[in-house]
Amino acid sequence: MADRRIRFVEALREGMRQEMERDASVFVMGEGVGPHGSCFKQTDGFCAQFGEDRCRDTPISEQAIAGAAVGAALAGMRPIADLMWIDFTTLATDQICNQAAKLRYMSDGQVNVPAVFRATTGRLKSNGAQHSGSWYSWYVNIPGLKVVVPSNPYDAKGLIISAIRDNGPVVYLEHKMLLNVKGEVPEESYTIPLGVAEVKKEGSDLTIVATGYEVTDTMKAAAMVEADGISVEVIDPRTLMPYDSDTILESVRKTGRLLVVDEGFRYCGYGSEIISMVVENAMECLKDRPRQFTAMHSTVPFSPPLEEYIMPSPVKIANEIRVVMGKSLEPEVAIR
């Protein structure tokens, strides 16, 4: 069954289901995870299989959902708290950032918080300003949290299983534009270690680090610039914290150039971190200044032409690659 192709959301669901079958301490709670099976059907069928105790609809109380997950985790359970949209996690940030992230440290290792906080992330055509966030770099900034952003169905399954088995809190973010994308996913259970990147495509001229949906856009862009004779290496960190600095540095030492493509914002964003890390550790290998290509620093607008204008796309990324390689004079947008 190695060639079985299923959708991202099915892979994610299968990973959660297999963990719930394997370990009675794993349960899901959140708004609408019950009989409805979640907004994007991530928990479809769980109620029938596991009962409403382990697939638990909640009030819309993000602080209590996240906090109850923290408490249950302290007492030996492995909760998966579904916060639905990353935009709603603002209401749960005390529990995620002040409690889940810190309790193990403050207790000097006496307690663990093996909780997964799941939410969808990123744009989906015209979801508007309050349902299109890409805020994972906020969570990357908190010591004690791990942050996972899968870019394909195979990773979605392997990473959710690792996240559930991890003894600390993990923020697991599902890009909405990936949920229906199909890919090869083995039926048996498997894990992908947190903190290990994947080289999606080898190349020699330029290293691109891309996250989440931008891996898809970047792979398309890399194919476009091949005609210009540009060989791009694409790295998907998969886990944004801890992240695989070794793989990124090894690639930059080979290519001498770095571009980060990210749907998040640039200021204190994920791209800033990667560039800073590379400059600190491998400045001598850089042939040119590193760059980042992100969503513009704007509230995400509703109207399609506006939204498309501020977001990365394969064509825009391809143009940015030509700029970095000195094959185009003008960046598409000088200041993002």
Binding site: Q63, A75, Q95
Partner: peptide
């Protein structure tokens, strides 16, 4: 299971301790 420095922060956690029980 924790004296919590954020006012109110311990309440959802205790709720979860009860849920686990």
């Amino acid at each position: 299971m924790g004296t919590i420095g954020i006012v109110g922060g311990g309440m959802p956690i205790a709720t979860g301790l009860g849920l686990a029980a």
